[in-house]
C-alpha cells in the first residue's frame, strides 16, 4: 500500500482564505485541486508537504471558462473534462480540444485541473506547451496582490515555477486575435501515459503569409516549452509545407530530449520535427477555414 507522509489538511472557503492559509502554513504547504499529479507523488514520497490547502470548493471563483474582451479566460480550477466539453474553447482554440483528448484518460480528466497541471510543472506536461504556443498569461494572486506572468516565463525548471509559496494561480488568459488557427499533435505509447513527444502550434495568416506563429513543445527538453528560433524563422514566410518543415527542423535542433524508457534521443528529436510540422500544417489549414 502506498501511504503518503502525514500532513495537516485545510479547506479553503474563498480565494482570500486560501492565500491566508498558505501564508500561515508556510513554504512546505501545497495547494491541492484535482490532486492527480500531487497525490501520486505524495504516495511515492517524492513530495512531502506538511500541509494541504484544498481549493476544490472554490469552483464559483476559479473554474469559469469564458470570453472576456479579447481573451479566452480559463479558470485554474477548470477540470480537463470541462475544457474538452467547452464549445467556446473549441471555437477559438481547437488546440485545447486536440490536447485534452489525449491528456490522461476520461476519468482522470473529470478531476484533474488546468491550474494543477501547469503548477505541477512536469517537464512532459501537455498544457504548458499549449499555453506556450498561444502565448497565454497566467494570473497569480498572493498576499502582495495580483500579478500576471506569461506562461512562457512561468516554469523555471522541472517541477518548479515562479509562484511564491503563498501565491495561487487564478486563471489563464489567452489573447484572441483574428486570422488564427491552432493544433496539437502528440505521440504516446498508450492512453494515460506521458507523451513520448508532443507539439502545439498557433498560426496567424495574412493571406498566404505567416503573420505570427507560436510553437510549444513538451517532453523533449525545450526551454520553457517553447521553440523561439523556429518561430522567428517562420514569421513573415509563406505558409507552405517547405517553410513548416524548415521551422520544425529548427525546433528539433534546439530542443534537448533525454533518452528514457519512452525512446532514445534521436527518435524523440525526429518526433519533435515531425509533430511540429504536422501541428503547423493543421493550424494553418484551420486558419484558412479548411479544417475544423
Amino acid at each position: 500500500m502506498q501511504v503518503p507522509a502525514p500532513f495537516t489538511y485545510e479547506r479553503a472557503t474563498s480565494v482570500e482564505h486560501a492565500i491566508e492559509l498558505l501564508g500561515q502554513l508556510g513554504p512546505e504547504a501545497r495547494v491541492v485541486a484535482g490532486g492527480h499529479s500531487l497525490i501520486p507523488m505524495m504516495k511515492l514520497r517524492l513530495a512531502r508537504p506538511d500541509a494541504l490547502v484544498d481549493i476544490n470548493d472554490l469552483g464559483a471563483e476559479l473554474a469559469q471558462i469564458r470570453v472576456d474582451g479579447d481573451a479566452l479566460v480559463i479558470g485554474a480550477l477548470a477540470r480537463h473534462a470541462d475544457v474538452l466539453a467547452s464549445a467556446v474553447v473549441g471555437e477559438h482554440f481547437p488546440i485545447f480540444h486536440d490536447a485534452e483528448r489525449v491528456i490522461a484518460d476520461p476519468v482522470v480528466r473529470n478531476f484533474g485541473t488546468v491550474g494543477g497541471s501547469l503548477c505541477q510543472a512536469d517537464p512532459a506536461e501537455d498544457l504548458a506547451a499549449v499555453f506556450a504556443a498561444l502565448d497565454a498569461v497566467a494570473v497569480l494572486r498572493g498576499a502582495a496582490g495580483v500579478r500576471e506572468v506569461r506562461v512562457r516565463e512561468l516554469h523555471v525548471g522541472p517541477y518548479e515555477t515562479v509562484l511564491a509559496p503563498d501565491e495561487l494561480m487564478l486563471e489563464l488568459r489567452v489573447p484572441i486575435r483574428p486570422g488564427g488557427g491552432s493544433a496539437y499533435e502528440k505521440v504516446e505509447r498508450r492512453v494515460g501515459d506521458y507523451p513520448v513527444a508532443a507539439a502545439g502550434a498557433a498560426v496567424w495568416l495574412d493571406g498566404d503569409t505567416v503573420r505570427d506563429v507560436g510553437i510549444g513543445l513538451t517532453a523533449v527538453g525545450a526551454e520553457h516549452f517553447t521553440a523561439p528560433a523556429a518561430e522567428e524563422a517562420l514569421r513573415g514566410q509563406p505558409a507552405t509545407e517547405e517553410s513548416f518543415q524548415a521551422a520544425a527542423r529548427l525546433a528539433a535542433e534546439h530542443c534537448n530530449p533525454s533518452a528514457d524508457q519512452r525512446g532514445p534521443v534521436d527518435y524523440k528529436r525526429h518526433l519533435a520535427a515531425e509533430l511540429t510540422t504536422r501541428a503547423l500544417r493543421r493550424a494553418a489549414a484551420r486558419a484558412r477555414g479548411q479544417e475544423a
Partner: peptide
C-alpha cells in the same frame, strides 16, 4: 473519479 487518487478528506 479514481478513488485511489483522492483523499477522503477532500
Amino acid at each position: 473519479v479514481k478513488s485511489c487518487t483522492v483523499f477522503a478528506a477532500m
